[in-house]
Design a protein around this nucleic acid. Structure first.
Length: 406
DNA sequence: TGTTGAGACGGAACCACATAAGTTA
DNA sequence: AGTAACTTATGTGGTTCCGTCTCAA
């Protein structure tokens, strides 16, 4: 660490907020994210202690450092002796956890400073902890009435976090994320001990014990907008089975009617029982992805796929860092598509993936904040019915204090 | 089959003001 | 040409308004 908080510029930054793309000290994190209900939902995690700019993804037990995916990969690449290091996932959280709660979820961090709180204590400390591995959809594990739930743990019990999420390079789960550039030879999904698919609206996570290959393969926050699937996969998609195979992820996409326009899937996952299917994630992303999910359920809810898989929210500005954020997305975008290896050479696929990534970088789907300083100011500016008010005038909404002046 | 009303949805507009960008002395 | 002072334009987010679309009656 050693870098300063993006907000106060004084304290050492410690956590990374993806939504704000900001590194914050714990104090500012607490202040900023106690402002309103929306900000409290921001998912935060530790800052990578190597690059100090990306959200930490894993904790290297031997080196005692938290690393983002890129740094983890650089430091623990295949031939590197450090590849044997044990690592554990760094959990995300939202809400306003206390220092004690943070100590609980990040037991390996010894120097969590106590945070003097101003606004969070009253019910605001409802905190959710999200395992950083492959899911964070919310879902059955979430408490429905949990407005005041002090600690809300998705996927895992706290007691299981540490032990369940430790792995080495040779184990299965994190390869999905930790080896983004070497995916041709590995399709290391499956067998996550730490996360199970949770699908909002379904009664229980669906597991497919007979098909561990796809098990727990969950992509949250990824809008796989495959306009250029021919580039990506190097095949024309006149016959979807050519790409995805007969009964695998292809059916997940409902590709039976595709013929060359967009294959765009949001909130997609499949179960063996189509009657249980629900949109996976509500985090709306690109409008076109919403469109496709609304207009053609088949695109998103496959018939009998083997995978618990969801897509939503990968924007056109995604880059390596974004892939890092979205976990398994990088696997699909950068690696070989399931069942496709038989139809195309890995080298051409890799080049296709590279071209696709480059093209993706140049595309723009969402608003881009050009001036962070203006955004920061707007974020804290008082309003009346959503409109900015003059300093000193009465307001009905204060993003920081969430109070009314009248 | 065509019409109508309700509801959902998306996009534009609005606000203040710091700051970037441009102009003038 | 370089600098300082001044003016103008821009962009930021939450809310509201309004037009369009969808669907059921």
């Amino acid at each position: 660490m050693g870098y300063l908080c993006d907000f106060c510029g004084e304290q050492r930054s410690m956590v990374y907020c993806r939504s704000d793309a900001a590194c914050l000290c714990l104090s500012c994190d607490r202040n900023v994210h106690s402002a309103n209900a929306l900000s409290r939902r921001h998912s935060r995690t530790l800052v990578c202690e190597r690059c100090n700019s990306q959200p930490a993804f894993v904790r290297c037990v031997e080196e005692r450092v938290s690393l983002c995916q890129n740094c983890d990969w650089l430091g623990h690449a295949g031939s590197n002796p450090a590849s044997k290091h044990k690592r554990q996932t760094v959990n995300c959280y939202s809400g306003c956890p206390s220092a004690a709660e943070l100590s609980t979820i990040w037991s390996f961090v010894s120097d969590i400073p106590s945070v003097t709180d101003s606004t969070c204590e009253k019910g605001l400390s409802s905190m959710s902890i999200t395992d950083n591995s492959l899911t964070n959809c919310g879902g059955p594990l979430q408490s429905n009435d949990g407005q005041d739930a002090s600690v809300l743990v998705e996927e895992n019990d706290l007691k299981n976090i540490d032990k369940s999420s430790v792995w080495t390079e040779s184990s299965s789960v994190p390869q999905l994320n930790t080896k983004p550039q070497n995916v041709d030879k590995e399709m290391g999904l499956a067998n996550s001990t730490s996360s199970k698919m949770c699908c909002p609206g379904t009664k229980a996570p669906v597991q497919h014990e007979d098909d561990g290959f796809y098990e727990d393969f969950n992509m949250d926050e990824i809008d796989l907008d495959i306009e250029n699937y021919e580039e990506l996969f190097g095949v024309a998609l006149n016959d979807p089975q050519q790409l995805f195979g007969n009964d695998g992820i292809g059916s997940l996409f409902g590709v039976k009617n595709l013929s060359g326009s967009d294959l765009n899937c949001q909130g997609a996952y499949a179960t063996q029982d189509s009657s249980m299917m629900q949109p996976a994630c509500s985090n709306a992303a690109s409008a076109d992805s919403m469109m496709s999910s609304k207009t053609d359920p088949n695109l998103c809810f496959g018939r009998q796929a083997h995978s618990n898989l969801s897509f939503s929210g990968l924007t056109g500005e995604s880059n390596g860092g974004d892939y890092q954020d979205c976990g398994a997305s990088s696997m699909l975008l950068m690696g070989e598509p399931p069942c496709a290896e038989s139809s195309m050479p890995s080298t051409s696929r890799s080049s296709a993936v590279m071209r696709y990534k480059e093209k993706k970088k140049t595309r723009k789907f969402e608003k881009k904040v050009r001036y962070a300083s203006r955004k920061a100011r707007a974020d804290v500016r008082k309003r009346v019915k959503g409109r900015f008010v003059k300093a000193g005038e009465a307001y009905d909404y204060d993003p920081l204090g969430k109070t009314r002046s009248f």
